[in-house]
Structure formats: C-alpha cells, structure tokens
Design a protein around this nucleic acid. Sequence first.
DNA 1: CTGTTAGCGCTTTCAC
DNA 2: GTGAAAGCGCTAACAG
Lengths: 358, 358
Amino acid sequence: MSSIALVYLIKLFKKETEKEIFMAITLKSIAKAANVSITTASLILNQKEGAIRFSEDTIRRVRETSLSLGYVPNMSARNLRQSESGNTSLTLAVLWPIDARVGLIGRILTGIHHFTSSLETITINLLVKTMNENGIQGVKELYDPNLFNGAILANASVEDEAYIHKVPPSVPIVLFSRTSPTYPYVWASYFETAKKVAEHFIENKHRRIVILASNLSSQALDQKLAGFVEALDGKEYLIRHCSFTEESGYDAVAKLIEAGDVPTGLICVCDQTAMGALSALHDRGIRVPDECEVFGFDNQSFSNFTIPKLSTVNLPVEEMAYSAMELLVQENLDPNNLVKHKKFELEMIHRGTTKKLI
Amino acid sequence: MSSIALVYLIKLFKKETEKEIFMAITLKSIAKAANVSITTASLILNQKEGAIRFSEDTIRRVRETSLSLGYVPNMSARNLRQSESGNTSLTLAVLWPIDARVGLIGRILTGIHHFTSSLETITINLLVKTMNENGIQGVKELYDPNLFNGAILANASVEDEAYIHKVPPSVPIVLFSRTSPTYPYVWASYFETAKKVAEHFIENKHRRIVILASNLSSQALDQKLAGFVEALDGKEYLIRHCSFTEESGYDAVAKLIEAGDVPTGLICVCDQTAMGALSALHDRGIRVPDECEVFGFDNQSFSNFTIPKLSTVNLPVEEMAYSAMELLVQENLDPNNLVKHKKFELEMIHRGTTKKLI
DNA sequence: CTGTTAGCGCTTTCAC
DNA sequence: GTGAAAGCGCTAACAG
C-alpha cells in the first residue's frame, strides 16, 4: 500500500515545515490552523447540534483544515472523556501467529463471542493482533501495556513459550493449547489421545505406519507426536514433516508412494493434512481404509464429509476458547481465587477411514 | 459464565455499601482506600523501579486493596497518557456476523494482516466485533464513536444494509462483499461469474439442474443467484435452500435423492455446501462428474482436495480484505481523493467435478 | 519514604 | 457566534 503511505509521508513533511515539528494532528492543531477555538473545531467536526450556530465561513474553514491535515480523532482521549464513570470495560487481545492454522481462528473467535455475549456487567473489547515471524517478541504492548488489559496467546511456538518464561509480560496472559508452570492455560489430552490413536493402528497390525507431522514446533504438536511415538515403541514407523495444510499432506503422501513406500496406516497431526493425504491416496488408486487407514486430528467441520468420512479426534476449539476467556477475565477481575488451568479430555471419532479392530 | 459474573456483582455491591455509590474502581479509589496518594498506588501497582523505596507495609496495603477491589487499569487513560505525541495510530474494527461463514474470517484476517504489516508510518489496532442477531443495530459504537476510527462491515445481511443507509454511522465504514451508492465497498463479479457457471451446465445439456442456495440473504448471495437464474432462463431448474455448511449441503442432496429427484447438475453457493453435496452423492452411489456435475464457489483451501477435486470459482478473500483496509485507511487519512470502491473479477476453476464441454 | 502537580486529547458546560 | 475552563484516569517530573 505504498500510495497511502506516500500520501501520509507527504503530510508529515508538510507538517514539519509549516507547523510545529512532529506535532500530532490533534483538534488543537486544527483549531490553531483554522484560527478558531478547540471547542469550535470539536463541535463542527462532530456535527453536533451546537454546530449549526457557527458561521458558514467558520464551518468551511474548519472542515477544510481538518481534511487537508488528515485529522483523525484520538480514540483513547475520546473514550476516556466520554466513558461514564463506573463502567467497567476490558480490552483483551488474541495474539495469533499468522502462519499457523488459519482454519482455527474462526472457531476461536466463535468461542470468544459466546463468552463475551454471556456477560452482563462487563463489556469486553477484543483486539486481534497477528504476530509475524518475530512472534511474541514483536508485541511490545505485552511489556509496556497501554493497549490491552490481557491477552490470549493462541498456538504459540516453542520460541514464544521460552520467551515469555524468560521475560514475563506485564499484563495477564492465558495460554491457549499450551501448559505452563506459571501462566494460566487451556490444555487438552493431546498426549493420551494421540497414544490411543496410535494404539488403534498397532492393534490392526499395520505393515507400514507413517506419521504426518508438522514442521512447526509447538507444545500441542510435540505432545501429539510423543503420544504417537510412545504407543509405537518398538514398532517400525516413519515420521514425515509437512505443514498444517491440505497441500502439504497431499505432497507428503504422493512422494512416499512415488518412492515405492506405500503406507498402510497414516496418522495425521490435523484434519487438513489428513484430507490432503486422502486425496493423494485416491489419486494413486490406494483404497481407504482397506489398503490404508487414515486418522486425523481436530474434527473440523469438513471432516465428516470427506470420502470416506474422516476418522479423527474431536478438539472442542470453541469451548477451549471460551474457557481461555473465562480464565483471562478472572485473572483481571478476581486474581485472588484464580483457577489456573483447564484441561479437556479428547475423544476419538471412528468414521470411514479406519477399519473396525480385527 | 455465571460464576465470574457473580463475583463481579458481589464486588459492585460491596463497593456500593463501603465506598461511594457506583464509583468506578480507579487508581484514585485504590489510593483513597489504601490511604496513600495516587502516585504511590500507580508506582506500586505498575512495579516500576521507583516502587522499591516504599515501605513494606505500604506496598502490601496497596496490593491488597487493589486485589480486593478488583482494580483494572483503564487502557484509554493509560494509552492517552503514554502515547508519544506525534504517533498516529488508527483503531479499526471488523464487524462480523457470528452465524455466517466461519471459514472466511480467518482469510479476511490474513488479508488485513498483510495490509497492516505493510504500513510503516501508521500503527493499526484491529478490533473484532462479532454481531449477534441484532446485527449492526447492536453496534452502538458506530453511532457514538469512542472505540474505533472506522470499520469494515463483513458479510452484512440485507437488513444491515438497509439500516446503515437509513441511519448513517458516524465513523467511516467500508462494505466487504457488498455494493453501495454511498459507502466505499469491495465487490466481486458475483453475477457475471455465476452466470458463466450456469452456462456451463446449460451447454452440457443437463436434465435436472439444482441450485443449492443459502437461506441467509445478502447482496453477494442474491447476485450469485441472479446470475444462475439469468443463465438458466427458460430452462427447468430447482432452488434448494440450506445454510453455508457441509452438513446442510449433504442434507439437501440426500433429501432430493430420497424423493427420487436425482440431480444431474448441482450448482452450489459455496464450497462447504458443495463438499457436503459431494459426500451425499457418493453415499448414494451417484458418480461425479459422470452422473452429476458439481460446481462450488469460493475456492477454499480444501477444495482442491475433495474427491473428485472440486470445480469452483476463485474468490480472492485475502486480496479483497486487503483492499477493504486500504479504502478504510484512505477514508480516514485522505478522504479528499477517495477511491470509492474496488471490484474483483472472479475466475472459474475447472477441476474434477465437472466434465469438459460436450 | 511519600505527595503535589502538570498534562496527554477530547467533550461539554457555561460565560461572554 | 465563539471561547475558556474543567475534568475523564493515568504517569512521571519534581518537591519535600
């Protein structure tokens, strides 16, 4: 968006030469430039009833000045001024790594919505902060907090986890889908359920078990993997790395088959990957579940409609997000008797991509 | 979440009897209750370096008072105070109807992220406001604006559209996936592309064409439908209503078949519905595309991995969201030379669920 | 060891 | 027709 950035830079430059150096464009500066009082500028720009009494000329002058300087009202000031004394409103943020799991954020927001709309005495404003490659280190508001009262850290990487334990944020945080000795968190039985999934494959006596794992490390993923691996102890298996997308699942399986290494059991770290795998198996003429069984993880809305229907683990993302908000609000309003964490027990759902036990 | 609400109500009650009636819990009230100055309270609660000089007793007293009263810092005040003069930051909101299209919000946020991280001179804070059944009417901040500088209205219903044209919001807005005579908007060639999709079915001489439409009315949906219908003019076809989910697509097709009305061509309003339809056709033994052709809309990430691969229309959601932000920022910073709208030309993608033209 | 005071940008009451 | 001034809640420089 270079065009807008450019326009804005030109304005900064103008400002520097014509007005005070680096002064923000506030009502004050508009008033000064238009040669009126701050009250007048405010009244006119806000189109309040009082504004009609001003002269045509004054109104025009203020409007033009505002437009040419690109005045933008400061929401913090306005909010501070206008908030009725006694109103409690919390500003909370969801910190979300942009590169991971686009499909889950909608479900997280849905869970958050259910929580916020269940409250009656408190208003919650939700900020979404997408993190780039710097991860949590790039979110300075966690350490110099003037933007939000607390944050949910969704799907943090292991680097992020290490960082927050080394340099504790100055606002309350809740970890989503992570555990921690220090912070409240929402967790699920990743390890135990993953183990059960792998046990299914063992019981069905597979010749060639392949795990489709993600290359992005996180505690949830590590625990899933650990569960798979523990159950598979002593058995022969293979781990293939890919990302959380259908495409990467497809590619991983396609490569495997092309190398002559046809899996008979495919354990996937998420449903997207499983769906890609299903597609690759179908394209190569390998029948599911007869020749190859497939298991997913997450239970996305599409998982019950793949061909065959995907066997998977139900991850109650909405409920987990709801709980995360619950913990976060509690941490803000009632830190005395804080429930530190909540763990969800996951369930396997057997559908069409797995066989009954032999 | 009644437990927290309860805790909070108890506090309100306590406050009412012990302190001033309905006074917000601010630093001032903490200071008063702990019998110290506001500075002292601030320094102690913020754990600043200056705090170490206070007596053990003072520190303890302030901490305890704060905890017991449930003090939550006012972010607007803090932000106002701490912002460096001259920093421009925009608070923008995405207004999102919770019940529609959970799968798209992740892509919208991704597009927004790309935009915000491309800016260098401006900081953008993004609020997500989920709307409930009241729609836009429930968002009072649009009319008494003290929370955000502008908003993107995503997937508004026809009621919402009518409302904003009757009662114009006091902040700049951009319509996502809508047109408007008054507001800037981001739009796509829904009508034209839908028409082309339907024309494909006509050229392949179908016996029984069924349109799987949504029951939620919106301009984008209406235009898709209008395009289908215009192309199908004079031909026999059927419209079945369902929602934007896989499940509803499955059910609609299943019912059709059970009624003995087996479609030979299925035009779906979104990929989720199409995926459900695909599953239902498969379960009933109807071969795709030989016995029934299927077309989707959106091009979601899973669409290239259904069995067979779904033919669909590519909707560049991320780019559209990027453009919406572009328009919104421009409307705030540079309303003089405002580009009013942007239209995206959509393309059909023929994959495995359609036959070549005969 | 603690408190007084100024001021962030804004809206609104009241005075001229 | 217009402006001065108070104050929302907070932080920090400075004064004791």
